[in-house]
Design a binder for these strands. Sequence first.
DNA 1: CGACGTATACTAACCACAGCGATAC
DNA 2: CCGTATCGCTGTGGTTAGTATACGT
Length: 396
Amino acid sequence: MGYMCDFCGEQRSMVYCQSDAACLCLSCDRSVHSANALSRRHSRTLICERCNSQPALVRCAEERVSLCQNCDWTGHGTSTPASNHKRQTISCYHGCPSAAELSSIWCFVLDLPSIQQSGCEQGLGSMSITENKASEGASSLIEVNGADCLEGSSSIPLSKSTSTALSQPSSTANPLLHRGYPPATPGVCEGENLYNELLMDEMDLNIENYEELFGLTLNNSEDLFENGGLDSLFGAKEVLAADSSYHGSQIAEGSSAGKVTSLQQACSAASGESMMSWKTEPIPCFSSRPAQSGVSFSAITGESSAADCQDCGASSLLLMGEPPWGPHGVEASHQSANRSNAVMRYKEKKKTRKFEKRVRYESRKARADVRKRVKGRFIKAGEAYDYDPLSQTRSY
DNA sequence: CGACGTATACTAACCACAGCGATAC
DNA sequence: CCGTATCGCTGTGGTTAGTATACGT
């Protein structure tokens, strides 16, 4: 609908990131674009308050609304009574400007009711600017000092809404449905957003990445389960008993011990091989111990499952703060920052990923496009063919 | 409500070979 | 360090068999 933040799905979106083609609330904009130097260079502007989907180019002073080009033409065309409204151009911004800087860019920004409603006003007000002139020039890095929009006192610049985005339901379509999997049973994982987050076709799939995302190394998979298993990784989310209709059928033949074993194999950071195997072997279902189940994976494709676990785990760790077995103190803080950066990089990558087929070698495509075939298969040069892409004729 | 049959949708494998990248000299 | 030669592997698209799912009876 283009109204809620594409990132957290909770707050009203206010700014449009052209680089990400995403609508973000101020809180998420700050957390996302403070992640690294590249993201700080993203050009953002306000969102059209009329269509709520396009970047606003002008601000109508009389109607007090920001408008994209289309809505501006529609509302202020020469044939409309509002054609003489005073409008001012809205500038794009980069980096992570403070409230004062934003207000200097957009003199009206602090008057926007959505800021006040979203509770981000305080967040803006509590921002401080750390100049990073050496590498960033005028762009600045925001440090958040207990901003209301952020959770806890962690140094991780992850908004509360960011955390919930990984576990909250969303109205967006479930990509798994397009892969021939049954729709998620209501109550299972409490929403499709989790599945959306799970689909990571380009996620770097190696154990280093796992550790990077989790920010820790589990030397023994049993550690994971002795500390609450997946429940502790993913946080408490109720799963209705009814979900066993589909999931149960997938695992009915397996004993509970077998389930635990497969879970350990699947989620053990110590088992790089098992992680890699997910890439090619579909894992129809995970279900943690039913009575204590905090989460249930259903129909996770092999293509994405490893990254899925990585993502969910990383996100959940962020959501929950430090894991009970994790390090503390300075080291923990450092790892938290690493996890935060990893998740941010993941988000960045996820935003830019493309599902459509991508041709990496045009020369090979050109060759394939003129190659003769038999029943779709390439044939040796000179052999009889039944399909010629160039002439659409048959040789016999 | 489950079993069964049919229709529809989706996926992976197959093929030849130019060209890419690694390696050796 | 640079250029050249050699070798193994990768990726390209249309078709089809196999599999999964949806739907009606």
